[in-house]
Simulated scan of single mutants.
Amino acid sequence: MTRQAITGARIFDGAEWHDRMALVIEDGKVEGLIAADSPTDAIRVPADGAMIVPGFLDLQINGGGGALLNETPTVEAIRTICTTFAQFGTTACLPTIVTDSVPVNEATIAAGIAAVEQGVPGFLGLHLEGPHLAVSRKGAHDPKLIRPMDESDLQRIVEARRRLPNLLITVAAETVGLEQISRLAAAGVTVSIGHSDGTYAQVKAAAEAGATMVTHLFNAQSQIGNREPGVVGAALDLPSLSAGLIADGIHVHPASIGIALRAKRGPGRIFLVTDAMSITGTDWTEFELTGQMAYRKDGALRLADGTLAGADLTMVDAIRYMHGTVGLSLDEVLRMASLYPAQALRIEATYGHLQRGARADFAILADDLAVRSTWIGGEKRFG
């Protein structure tokens, strides 16, 4: 692959900003930073007046561009999702399936394996959000499809992990056994607690068994109370847990976001997810989700009864919201969209930053955060 030097832009490498430097990439990886005026045999690619930032990682993305995995569990749908969100700076994602039947889960896993074999740009693995959840916190998931995890389910997930680079599964702390969580974690599956009415003690036990994340913090889970901290309290208090956050101004109040960020004990972090649906990136006004109609209105996606059904959100929009409304520094918000999800998935050695040896996954942004171009593995995929 041609050696290139991206010049003329401020560079955020995931830790700090660099001025008057060039980003040198070769063979799909970051070679390093050099002074912008240094002699080099690399082909210079101008990015005048822009920002170069690590590509965004989205660990919960149900659909986009008209494709929804639950409705069309195919490699073509995965490709559409990855291509659609590359327009918005996302360079790696976990296409996500919500609670569905065994055949749809099997078809989704088969599609994910095919996406790996075909080298779909931006495909990082799969997120299975259900069906082993709590009906009391079902959200938009079909309660008729929610069920306990049996041995065949566990074996299917373990086998899928052997053939996928990453596999994330959302389960309820009170409905999936600790031994099951332990076996999944031992097999390399990332276990996240979500759609759960679990107690603090139940989430703590799940974390000790191997769970490392909480799905869409504050939404579809037990809240903090004076005598029972619930899933939210456990997510913030337990250092080993990271948590996804839907920052669209609808799912979580900005004050609650600020409180959570100040309260979170590390090393686990709060990171951004979109929870986007097929309608994102289209001009549609409605879509179908596991047999239920959902409607787009006032920036939200809701079922007929008003239940939120995912989000109409891109990662760059979430970044704007966190920076402009919640008031976080831009560098910290960028880490929430890149480095922190990479750390949550334990792939930060090569993803989520632009330091030497990292994948050459990055976005070039204008001052207003509009995405000028998106690069995946050193190749321009948008712009």
Rank of each mutant, 00 (worst) to 15 (best):
Q4S: 14
Q4E: 14
D19G: 11
D19F: 03
R20A: 15
D41A: 15
L59H: 06
N62K: 07
G63L: 04
G64A: 14
G65C: 08
G66K: 06
N70W: 00
P73R: 07
A77R: 02
F85H: 15
G89A: 04
T91S: 11
N105M: 15
A110M: 06
A111I: 00
A111E: 02
V116I: 09
G119Q: 11
G119A: 10
P121K: 14
H127E: 09
P148W: 03
E151P: 07
L154H: 06
V158Q: 08
V171D: 00
V176C: 05
V176A: 04
H195P: 04
G198Q: 06
A201R: 14
V203N: 05
A207W: 00
A209T: 07
N226K: 15
A234V: 12
A235I: 06
S240H: 13
L272H: 11
V273F: 03
T274Q: 03
D275Y: 02
I279M: 11
E288M: 09
K297H: 14
G299T: 10
A300R: 12
L301H: 02
L303W: 01
Y321A: 05
S329G: 12
M336I: 09
P341Q: 10
G357M: 06
A358W: 05
R359Q: 14
I364A: 04
L369E: 01
S373V: 07
F382A: 03
